[in-house]
Design a protein around this nucleic acid. Structure first.
Lengths: 199, 199
DNA sequence: TAAAAAAGTAGACATCGTCAACATCGAGGA
DNA sequence: TCCTCGATGTTGACGATGTCTACTTTTTTA
């Protein structure tokens, strides 16, 4: 007779489940509320089971942030491959996708850019710079097609990235005042970026 | 005979000392390393003495962040009152002062914008929005003097603030790649902001 | 100057991260 | 088929931490 899933000794895919549980718990209660015990309990496993998959709590959180960056890069890439738009339109879609990801996955986003709860690893750096590369790439392409100014693309990327990250994180933390119409605010930013990059 | 300061039963100005110690410890070891016990020990006081001045750890960190915002506002205001420059020049000085504060007081800055370690209070919100007001104010003044475009100053402020905050926090966390010349990078941003705001 | 308020201390306890030792399971070679 | 071994999960234990309670010492005030 096959045992009930909840009662099996071996969980099956504990590593993935723990990361999912971490994201859910951050969304509901914030990072500070995360404990190895409550996490294990939530997943239905004993206190120290997580240590078979992560060397410690920081390692688990870092892995979660790394996973976040992967999904983030994916979201940006999806926007970049929307061929119903021209290249410049796709670039603007990426901007929308950026903010949308930050809002919809604020737990991930906060963790990804929190220096406190995380300790950088090679995997983390790789996932994190992949997202940045996504941005530099399209800027280079746009320059080659003469759609935007010819400037150091890394500087352009730092500019756009700073603006997007600043806006998203201030928005998430409720530090931007008097925003009744988000899309209006984003349109404003879009105009500023376009004016800054287009000749 | 007057007792040695270190041996006095009453510390004298424990509240202030604790906040200072918090800043120092964050600078040296990061927020995670902060414990009530090590903090008290550092200041030369017993474990629970801090609880006479702060209701708990979060309260202490929030008070520290609030103090950070006060000094931050002050730094912005000092730049704004540099009358060797005209109004537009002072606005640009504020931008430099912003990034400079973030770099020189990265412990403060990280804490001020960390939603994890802090819990908003009235005093915190007040100090935090004072800094924002500093920015809106000068934008209004610049508009009235016809130095920049006439637009919703709050939107302009959100734009500038997002850019400054994004750049500063990415810079602090080492997420901006290939920055060998910081002043060159800041000049680039300055040009973008000017082009965006000036008619 | 006496009494109360303010500031600091020590004991105690629940919770947390995590190490060590032990238990159970699944896969593959004898 | 059985046996063994590596992977995975469990329980016990311990030191560190936040913070409550009760007590002590100093300062303020009436």
């Amino acid at each position: 007779m096959i045992k009930n899933i909840q009662q099996r000794y071996h969980h099956g895919d504990l590593r993935t489940s723990l990361i999912k549980a971490t994201v859910e718990m951050i969304n509901k209660q914030g990072v500070e509320a995360i404990t190895m015990r409550s996490l294990s309990n939530w997943v239905g496993v004993s206190r120290t089971a997580a240590y078979r998959h992560f060397s410690n709590k920081v390692d688990l959180l870092t892995a979660t942030a790394t996973e976040g960056f992967k999904q983030f890069s994916l979201a940006l890439r999806v926007a970049r491959l929307d061929y119903s738009e021209d290249e410049l339109g796709r670039f603007r879609l990426m901007g929308q996708a950026y903010v949308q990801f930050a809002i919809e996955h604020s737990a991930y986003y906060g963790l990804m850019f929190s220096d406190a709860s995380i300790q950088k690893t090679d995997a983390f750096d790789e996932a994190s710079s992949a997202a940045f590369t996504e941005l530099v790439d399209i800027l280079v392409t746009l320059q080659e097609a003469n759609k935007i100014k010819t400037e150091d693309p890394k500087m352009q990327a730092n500019f756009v990235w700073s603006l997007m990250h600043g806006f998203s994180s201030l928005l998430i933390n409720g530090k931007l005042q008097h925003i009744d119409d988000l899309s209006k605010e984003m349109t404003y930013l879009d105009q500023k970026i376009m004016a800054s990059l287009v000749e």
